[in-house]
Amino acid sequence: MTATLTRADVAPAASPKRRRRAPGWLAVLPLLVFTAVAFGLPAGAMLNGAFTVEDPATGATSYTTGNLTASLQGAYLTALLGSVKLSAVSAALAAVLGLPLAQAVVTSRFPALREAVFTASGVLANFGGVPLAFAFVATLGNAGVLTRHLGLGGTGWDLYSFWGLVLVYLYFLIPLMVLTITPALDGLRAQWREAAQNNGATTVQYWRHVALPVLLPSLLGGLVLLFGSSFAAYATAAAMVGSSVPLVTLQIADAISGNVLVGQENVALALSLDMVLVAGLVMAVYLPLQRRSARWLA
């Protein structure tokens, strides 16, 4: 006798309960909160202050573009252009000097030398501020050790000048360039050099027609990174040159502290907004260059 099974007799297997997985954004929520507090609030305060002016008689505040207009005139404009000039010259020199140094390290047959240079570059790239200024003042200042022993005072050498500040900036920009360009140099394939040599190309021709075109996005990206690093530097220049070299970071400090004029805090915020805009332009150039170099060297 064959038993007939009805649909009711065949009970569906109980499916296990699916575990509800937390949304992925919860994992980055602490980082988002920290970013909003550490960067969002200061940025909002800067924007609000840059477009706000207070009436000294009534204390009433109103929104205007007067602060931005003032930040692009007179001594403030001179300081902004001075920072751009200093950053551009320092970044260009650091890129020119850092590239052959990085190439020498990459092609070295001594792993210990490579590790030593990278370790020293990592330390020196982050060494700045007042300690760096004091080290150069004690070494190459008016009464510095090398200044007296080499007789630099009679040659017109002046550490507390534009070119003196460039020399100090190179101390941490060249190691930063070494760290930045080394991954790109490691990405140059040995087959490219061998192919160029098999076709009769010299070393100069290889670098001109093969290596440099491939490295160009990384070189420009490193140049932009060096520019941004020197553009935002403050403590070293403040401790060394004071107001003898016009820089926008020093002007911001003077406006906030009231060293020159009282009540210019909002102009200082406008100057900070100018710096943010310049940094934004720098990053707008840097990020596409990094993506392009990554495609070539992948």
Rank of each mutant, 00 (worst) to 15 (best):
L185K: 09
L185E: 12
D186V: 04
G187E: 08
L188T: 07
L188E: 12
R189A: 15
R189G: 04
Q191E: 15
Q191F: 02
Q191P: 00
Q191Y: 05
R193E: 13
R193V: 00
R193C: 00
R193T: 01
E194Y: 05
A195D: 07
A195K: 06
A195E: 09
A195M: 13
A196T: 02
Q197C: 05
Q197W: 10
Q197I: 06
G200L: 08
G200T: 05
G200R: 06
G200M: 08
A201S: 14
T202E: 09
T202Y: 12
T202M: 09
T202R: 11
T203K: 12
V204E: 09
Q205D: 03
Y206W: 15
Y206C: 08
Y206L: 13
W207I: 09
W207N: 12
R208D: 03
H209W: 11
H209E: 10
H209P: 02
H209D: 11
V210C: 05
V210E: 02
V210A: 08
V210R: 01
A211G: 07
L212K: 09
L212N: 06
L212H: 05
P213N: 11
P213Q: 10
V214W: 08
V214C: 14
L215W: 07
L215S: 05
L215E: 05
L215K: 04
L215Q: 04
L216A: 15
L216V: 04
L216Y: 04
P217G: 07
P217L: 07
S218F: 00
L219K: 01
L219H: 01
L219V: 13
